[in-house]
Design a protein around this nucleic acid. Structure first.
Length: 607
RNA sequence: GGCCCUGUGGCGCAACUGGAUAGCGCAUCUCACUACGAAUGAGAAGGUUACAGGUUCGAAUCCUGUCAGGGUCACCA
């Protein structure tokens, strides 16, 4: 039973019995460390309903609760804050309730509503970089959090596999590639193709520069440079299904997919369903036609179709070009509908896309609502800030990016160096070490990115390596490993429930249970912290925020380390208390593991 | 210029969504390994929450204005 629910009901009861007033809500919060107590009732909001001095009202409620509620053993009032002391028995009972629940904190209702979470969605003309990593980690984690909160979730990505940018790398490869392949060069496919994307840009810029030098206007030169004209011609051929162009396109895209797969696997993310833009880019046109009939869209004289969103404080937005072809928005409308057709249980979608597209999604969601889809009420743009370098924005074309594979390797190597230095794993095989180093390196990277509120932009300095100490992934992993070390050494039965001794607990003890005299403050704090896990998962889901989970796990771990350092676990002389402390450690370990799993971070038994 | 996001000790982040004396980690300075793992713990120092008004019992949080940084305003995606 949740103590909050009990107290809320009882406080209302108290107010009714003392003042004959029905209170609509009760504000509860954990008591600050500097005050005595566990849960605090804030009296101030009641003053609207109950006239009087907040301190006196607090005293009245406190006295009533102490009298009427078993769990409340004492109280004190500071200004308008009523601090309640909850007895140790309650916390022990609570702990025994959750102790053996392997899925503690997770809701497993298999609700009928499914959510689709889209993330990653890369272009197939260049390798993934740090920006994609943030996207991937956020999307994956939010999907896992939603699952834990009881939703059915489909993870998806839309692969931007067509368009002028793809033709650019294709053309450059044709011209300068000399038949190079991933096999012939030993390069990862996405890297190889990315090189040609850069090569195109270089050639293009050179052509433009030359034309400008020869007297052409810059804007004209950018439009007329032979290489860009040729790329556009290639796109036309692709759209006309030209066999040669399509064959090249398939071949080069496959190189990229093979490369992406390696990166995704290293990163530990996965997808349930893939969408390809080449399949979806024509979608949405019929919906637009339908929308015109409904009067949602209107046609201009030149044939282009628009929606007027000025009433909603936005602009007019084009949804179909004058030549009848689709724009980005059209595709997105069509694709979202397609997704629901493919998965009829979807009743909401999350789009993990950078905040540069805030406006686009505002418009998209509004249009879908206007079109009357019920699921359009549950759309969320998981918008996140850009990852910038000290030198500014990352730009693939200019080669100023932090490559995803390189970064993962760097992190692994830093972990390896640190581990070697500490020298605790001499008995590990090279393969075991490699696996562990990757786990820790990735743990550092993932935590570093996920602990920050998604909305905020991140400044990443490659010169200063990601921390492994303090508020970091490895810190949490280390604590987990420490707990496992204790569990390995605890060679006694820990299956019994420990309760308060009869002397400390008026209710007495049940048959076959073991007792302790009372909880140490550090033990109690840990149980309190464990209590917050389920609500943390829900809060994280409501806010689509892995940072909420990361911060929670960090607080739990900090609390545990303090407990660990200040009290003896296996060295405890009282046998019952020793058992209890091992159980407590085990549970904390489980929650660390569960919480980190929501972030996509693994935890090691040793490190 | 219009609209959107962000601004918290030197740096990186929190603050249970309006509650108590604004927490934590790096970095700096002290302590603690013949303790269950020091990738740790205990402590010190460091703040007018960008600025100015306002709302109320109470503001980092809400409103208005100003400043700074970023984004966005294409028949591009």
């Amino acid at each position: 039973m949740n103590i909050k629910n009990v107290l809320e009901a009882k406080v209302k009861e108290a107010i009714f019995s003392i003042f004959s007033v029905d209170l609509p809500a009760v504000e509860l919060q954990p008591t600050r460390k500097d005050f005595e107590g566990d849960v605090t009732v804030v009296v101030f909001p009641m003053l609207r309903f109950v006239k009087g001095n907040p301190v006196q009202i607090g005293e009245h409620i406190g006295a009533y609760l102490k009298e009427q509620v078993d769990e409340v053993s004492d109280f004190n009032v500071v200004k308008g804050f009523l601090n309640l002391v909850i007895n140790d028995g309650f916390y022990l009972d609570f702990f025994n309730e959750i102790k053996d629940d392997a899925a503690y904190g997770f809701v497993n209702e298999g609700g009928t509503d499914a959510m689709m979470v889209e993330y990653s969605s890369p272009n197939t003309n260049k390798p993934l970089h740090l920006g994609h990593i943030r996207n991937n980690l956020l999307g994956y984690s939010v999907a896992e959090i939603l699952k834990a909160a009881g939703k059915k979730v489909y993870k998806t990505q839309i692969i931007n596999d067509r368009g002028i940018h793809i033709c650019k790398s294709m053309l450059a490869w044709q011209r300068f590639g000399n038949g190079e392949t991933p096999e012939s060069t030993g390069l990862k496919g996405d890297k190889l193709v990315g090189n040609y994307y850069v090569a195109f840009d270089r050639a293009y810029k050179a052509e433009v520069a030359k034309m400008v030098a020869d007297g052409t206007e810059k804007k004209e030169a950018e439009k007329q440079a032979p290489i860009i004209v040729e790329a556009q011609e290639m796109l036309r051929k692709w759209e006309a299904n030209d066999t040669e162009v399509v064959a090249l396109w398939k071949r080069m895209n496959q190189w990229v997919y093979d490369g992406f797969e390696v990166t995704y696997k290293n990163l530990g993310v996965d997808f349930d369903k893939l969408y390809y833009e080449s399949d979806t880019y024509l979608l949405g046109k019929d919906v637009v036609a339908d929308g015109i009939k409904k009067g949602i869209f209107y046609k201009k004289d030149d044939g282009s179709v628009w929606i007027d969103l000025t009433d909603e404080g936005l602009d007019e937005k084009i949804v179909l070009r004058s030549d009848g072809t689709a724009v980005y928005m059209t595709q997105d409308i069509g694709t979202s509908i397609q997704r629901v057709n493919d998965h009829p249980d979807i009743n909401g979608m999350v789009y993990t896309v950078g905040n540069e597209q805030d406006y686009h999604f505002k418009v998209l969601f509004l249009i879908l609502k206007k079109l009357g889809f019920s699921w359009a009420e549950h759309l969320h743009h998981l918008s996140y800030g850009m990852v910038d370098l000290p030198s500014g924005k990352m730009k693939s074309r200019e080669g100023t990016v932090v490559d995803a594979d390189d970064l993962i390797n760097d992190m692994t190597q830093t972990a390896a160096a640190l581990s070697e230095e500490l020298g605790k794993l001499e008995d590990y095989s090279p393969a075991e070490k490699a696996e562990l180093n990757k786990m820790v390196g990735l743990g550092a990277l993932k935590y570093y990115i996920l602990k920050v509120d998604p909305k905020k932009r991140i400044l990443f300095d490659p010169e200063e390596s990601v921390d492994f100490q303090g508020n970091t992934g490895p810190f949490v992993q280390y604590t987990y490993a420490r707990i496992q070390s204790i569990l390995r050494k605890a060679d006694f039965d820990t299956s019994v429930n420990i309760t308060l001794s009869a002397a400390a607990h008026s209710a007495g003890k049940a048959e076959g249970e073991s007792t302790v005299e009372g909880l140490h403050a550090k033990e109690k704090e840990l149980i309190k912290q464990l209590q917050f896990f389920p609500e943390t998962v829900q809060l994280a889901a409501e806010n689509y925020s892995p940072a909420v989970v990361a911060n929670y796990v960090y607080d739990l771990v900090k609390e545990f380390n303090s407990f660990y350092q200040n009290l003896s676990i296996l060295g405890e002389v009282d046998e019952q208390r020793k058992v209890f402390r091992v159980q407590l450690s085990q549970k904390v370990g489980e929650v660390i593991k569960s919480g980190f799993a929501l972030l996509g971070i693994a935890v090691p038994d040793r490190m």
